[in-house]
């Protein structure tokens, strides 16, 4: 028998924490970094560690993406207590849609990288492709063959 399924995901970097190591040693940390860098390259944004709020105050994050379309930027923070990943931004003034787009792009990149690596861990040969749907946006396909 074979099957079809649908699911959503949450990003929680807690493998290293559970083993008593620091969060930067978690296998997901490097995936998150790659997901952020890929999103930044796609959007023409810079990667740093500070975002700004409406009052131009700096807020330190683990990763921050800032660019001309959203100069305040979107930050990614990973909880040192639980490994939960959260996005932070100040979208006041009509930036909500752009901020959401950046967050979605990071999540989609993370999912793609993690799914490809998980398939490789199970010895599948992985093929990767993507297409831009006019209404639904980017769709990424990750296929494993064994």
């Amino acid at each position: 028998m074979s099957h079809l399924s649908k699911f959503k995901t949450e990003i929680v970097l807690d493998s290293a924490l559970q083993a008593g190591r620091k969060i930067e040693d978690d296998p997901g940390w490097e995936i998150l970094k790659q997901a952020v860098e890929t999103a930044a390259a796609e959007l023409g944004f810079e990667v740093g560690v500070f975002i700004k709020d409406y009052y131009n105050r700096n807020l330190r994050c683990d990763f921050a993406l800032r660019g001309p379309d959203f100069p305040r930027g979107v930050g990614v923070k990973v909880s040192r207590a639980t490994g939960a990943v959260e996005f932070v931004y100040d979208a006041y003034g009509g930036y909500e849609r752009k901020a959401r787009e950046i967050c979605d792009s990071i999540v989609q990149n993370y999912q793609s990288i993690a799914l490809a690596r998980a398939l490789e861990m199970l010895n599948y040969t992985v093929q990767y492709s993507e297409e831009n749907h006019p209404v639904e946006g980017r769709k990424v396909s990750v296929k494993g063959v064994l």
Binding site: M1, S2, H3, L4, S5, K6, F7, K8, T9, D104, S105, V107, Q108, Q111, S112, L115, L119, Y124, E136, G137, R138, K139, V140, S141, V142, K143, G144, V145, L146
Partner: peptide
């Protein structure tokens, strides 16, 4: 055996498992 994931921009993932016997999938 093939496993295909389609990842949408809204965070939803669809998977398709093909070529598995019984409940191996």
């Amino acid at each position: 055996r093939e496993i295909k994931f389609t990842i949408s921009s809204n965070g939803e993932v669809e998977s398709e498992f093909a070529g598995f016997h019984g409940e191996d999938c």
